[in-house]
Amino acid sequence: MSESRRRKMRTAVLLLAPAVAVLLGVFVLPMLYILLMSFQNKQEHISLVNYATLVQDPYYLQVLWRTIKLSLLTVLACLVFGYPVAMYMAQASSKMRGIVTFLIIAPHLVSVVIRNFGWVILLGEKGLINNVLMQAGLIDKPLRLMYNELGVVIGLTDSFMVYMVLAIATSMYQIDVSLYKAAGILGAGKLRTFLNVVVPMTLPGMLAGSTLVFSLSMSSFVTLALMGGTSVKVLPVIAYEKIMTELNWQLGASISFLLLFSTVALVTLFTRLVETKRYKEVFSS
């Protein structure tokens, strides 16, 4: 190796050293540490007792299922409402596109605590929605719009909509406008064009957006605590309780890994499913 090469390498190592140190000390080692801890019993002996508890006690499986269900509902809501926005952005003038992009992203840079507080104002007993409905005479006592699963899905959808919209919009931008026209000339109606041309081409964007929103929803804690109240128990919430109130760190660590692995497994499974289906479609047509 030449002298200058070696000098370059030395510079690179020096420049990277602080980042790698932080990464090791505050991420890699802590993760390994809790991985080890999740395989220990209270006496700090190696044991599978935590994972055994998680598998055998139906309570945890119930919580896992609720976590997955709420995340799926959030994904669905983001898809249904995000898709038209992305479509609009793809067709709008560049000025409108810029404005919509800004308005979708900007709120995301304000703390989630404050956004959730806004929802409390809107959804509360004396909030905007109940007030409007009461005034209109549609209901005579306030609806319960939060501190339940509905509130959680609303809060999460608001938090993660931005990722879905941007992911779909990115794939929308890549569709050549002439494709719409070509489909139109071939006699396909608007709906057929949409289903046969636009949807398949934005599938990668939808997939990317969905897996991202799903992963984020699975592990979100703040919104659950603020808009789900005490009744909606999900994995992040019980992990927090085990660690901070019950001080059962070993079990808390294993819940963290249950959360991490179930998320990764489901995302992988889902991606595989969608992609095999796409291959089949491509080859059968």
């Binding site: 991420f27 080692l29 992990a239 760190w249 959360l259």
Partner: peptide
């Protein structure tokens, strides 16, 4: 990695 899990890992390790 979810922020929650980073938080837990860092707390226990620290």
């Amino acid at each position: 990695v979810p922020a929650l899990i980073i938080g837990i890992a860092v707390l226990l390790f620290f």
